[in-house]
Simulated scan of single mutants.
Amino acid sequence: MAGDAGLRNFTTLARLALRGAGRIFSPRSLGPEPGMPFEQAMSTLLADPGVSAHVRTARLVALGAESGWEAVGFDVAPGDEVTVIAAGGFWASKPLDLGFGARIGLWLRAGGTGPIRKTPTNASSLVMESAGALEIVAKPPGEWADEQGGFDTAYPRGGVAGEIGACVIVWQRSAEAGLEAMSRAGDYEGLVARALDEARHPVPAPQGWHYLWRLGEGRIFREAHGADGRTICCHTSGDVGILQFPADFPLTENTRLRWRWKVDRLPCDLPEDIQPTHDYLSIAVEFDNGQDLTYMWSSSMAEGTIFRCPLPFWDKVETHWVLRSDPAGLGKWLSEEQPLKADYAKAVGAPPARIVKVWLIAVSVFQRHEGICEYADIELVDGDRVLKIT
């Protein structure tokens, strides 16, 4: 088995290298370019009289791949509306075409104590929750030591190159009004238009759910109501997010996770069990011992395959179970029911006592492709006891 996995991993990396070689002369962009054109465009827009009337304060910041928290240079208060418009990104491996743009790597905090907040895109507005000096950092989505923004020393950042340029604006009143004025004054690579659209049409997390703080807020999941009843729609493209629902539920021999899902498009067409190709869609259960078991739809791995997550930090807490991989099932609503205690014993080990959360996971940050799916009728069941989640 280990030999088969090793051969598969070698083959996967070889296919990635061939794809990367094919993009040497036409590499995929990480987004609008940072540097002088971006800075000049933002400075010109901020200086426009129609825009400056809405701006309390603003600053342009250049962020390196391995820098720490940087003071923006001004304070914020709870309720302040802050817009971050950013360009650029970081490369982990150009030969393998692995990189991430500013849309998933910018974090803010106030007063040096958090809580940390991620900008959902590279042109987003946030309402501040705490007071103090505003700080910003560019960091790949992943491992924090705490919600206050401490870095986990077990996962030192390194091996990435690039730059992110950010324009940080605190508005006199609303971000929407300020961005409307800015859009009348001009734009840079569509970033102002995107920021205005984000302000006008926010995408809240579905009712009762919240994004995992460790990966930050996003625009991946939204609630919908249609012919199939209430569903949660997932659309991921070059980003990552985990949606969580609190669920205090005992784990017994009879505990089942039930749901329906319709996967229209997978974010990866290679085996997902190594880091450079670990893009996938799944539903997961978190237990009271900190472990989670996630049922995923694979593009090419055999159904029933079980593997530990290949990502740092997550390799200690997450186990993947390939539940579906038949392409004939794509685009169809499918009903699932899994015996959680028996599955945990098979995949992880001695089962814990309770379930604490249900997750929806979407990862497309590595290959930067698109994933689309929907979930419905999610529930935990144990005999007559039913916890309806969606």
Rank of each mutant, 00 (worst) to 15 (best):
T153D: 10
T255D: 05
G158L: 02
E336W: 07
L257W: 11
I220M: 10
A131C: 03
G73Y: 14
D382M: 11
A110H: 10
G290W: 08
P34N: 06
L96M: 15
G101K: 03
G99C: 03
A138H: 06
T236M: 00
W359Q: 11
G132Y: 12
G101R: 02
F25N: 10
A175H: 08
L7T: 09
S43H: 13
E318Q: 15
S237A: 14
G68I: 07
D384H: 09
K262D: 06
E143G: 09
A362P: 03
I104M: 11
W171F: 02
A350M: 11
C309W: 03
A77N: 07
P156A: 10
H278N: 15
V76M: 07
E374L: 07
L212Y: 13
R173F: 03
L60P: 06
T305S: 14
Q275P: 00
V72W: 07
P37I: 03
S130T: 15
R385Y: 00
Y280W: 12
Y344R: 04
G64I: 08
L380V: 04
R200G: 04
V348F: 02
A86S: 15
A14D: 09
D288H: 10
F25E: 11
Q207E: 14
R109V: 12
Y375V: 01
T11W: 10
I232F: 13
N289R: 04
G105D: 09
I378C: 04
T57Q: 14
R258G: 09
P310F: 09
L281D: 05
P312Y: 11
H235N: 06
I220Y: 02
L281N: 06
A362H: 01
R222G: 05
A347P: 01
W107N: 02
R222F: 06
V203F: 04
S364I: 01
F366N: 14
T294I: 05
G73Q: 13
G216E: 05
G229A: 08
G20L: 10
A166Y: 09
A350I: 11
I164T: 06
G149M: 06
R19P: 00
R19V: 05
F10A: 15
T153V: 11
A53V: 12
A41M: 08
A123C: 12
S325F: 04
E198P: 00
R28Q: 10
G216M: 07
V381S: 02
F151V: 12
W259C: 01
M36Q: 15
R230L: 12
H369T: 02
C233R: 14
A47K: 12
V76W: 03
M296W: 02
S174D: 12
W209N: 04
V61W: 04
K341L: 14
G101A: 10
T319E: 06
D48K: 05
T305F: 11
E336C: 11
H54S: 09
G6V: 03
